[in-house]
């Protein structure tokens, strides 16, 4: 598989690890973060991280899609 594609899938799997599979590790009350239970604070933190991961996947995809054609928005012509 293309190296960049592989990295996009790895990056996309990160939010699944953070928000889903690791639940036994972070589903607890303490330590409170700004007075908020740890499990809520953990998920609040992972919301922007999810966006960041997708942005990373997007950048990787752009690099594949537009080598030297300059067609950065050109997915329609594909």
């Amino acid at each position: 598989m293309d190296r960049r594609k592989l990295w996009s899938y790895v990056l996309a799997a990160v939010p699944f690890l953070g928000m889903c599979f690791t639940v036994p590790l972070w589903d607890r009350l303490y330590p409170l973060v700004f007075g908020i239970p740890f499990n809520i604070a953990w998920l609040i933190a992972w919301v922007p991280i999810t966006s960041l991961c997708l942005w990373g996947v997007y950048r990787l995809g752009k690099a594949v899609d537009s080598p030297d054609t300059g067609a950065t928005e050109g997915e329609i012509s594909k």
Partner: peptide
């Protein structure tokens, strides 16, 4: 809390 997780992951 599942609501935050599943809606975020649905966007992935």
């Amino acid at each position: 809390l599942y609501v935050i997780s599943y809606i975020s992951l649905a966007y992935v």
